[in-house]
């Protein structure tokens, strides 16, 4: 097997994290499962948020998981890509909005 940091098969073993700390692991999964239940937001909306966040934090496991989850829910690839652009826009915007800080600093330092 090639040596890589990420192995897609490891995603299936996510549940094993409870092996070394059952109490906290169980609490985490209970919380996690509650978060994704239909609530004020639909399961579909939550899946798209999760997909966008997965790309923002660049977690390959989450990307696999929520791409699959979106397909299961009948979400189209157009909708999925739009969600990613929302993540991209916020991410890009977060860099650019700091431009104001840069401008303030330049304005303060320059004669």
């Amino acid at each position: 097997m090639s040596k890589t940091y990420y192995d897609p098969a490891d995603l299936r073993k996510f549940g094993n994290i409870t092996d070394w700390n059952e109490e906290l692991g169980d609490k985490f999964f209970e919380y996690y499962n509650s978060v994704f239940k239909e609530g004020a937001l639909s399961g579909r909306e939550k899946a798209l948020i999760a997909l966008a966040v997965a790309h923002t934090i660049q977690c390959p496991y989450c990307i696999d998981a929520y791409t699959g989850d979106s397909l299961k829910r009948g979400i189209t690839k157009q909708e999925m890509m739009e969600a990613l652009h929302v993540a991209g826009a916020i991410r890009g915007g977060a860099s650019l909005v700091h431009g104001v800080q840069m401008m303030n600093k330049v304005n303060k330092l320059e004669m």
Binding site: G43, R44, D69, L71, K72, R73, G74
Partner: peptide, 20 residues
């Protein structure tokens, strides 16, 4: 009848029905 168009399982039947 809805069946997934690919290598994944169907989601919740009721939610899919609502979307359809």
């Amino acid at each position: 009848v809805y069946n997934p168009s690919g290598a994944f399982l169907p989601g919740n039947q009721q939610e899919l029905e609502n979307d359809f």
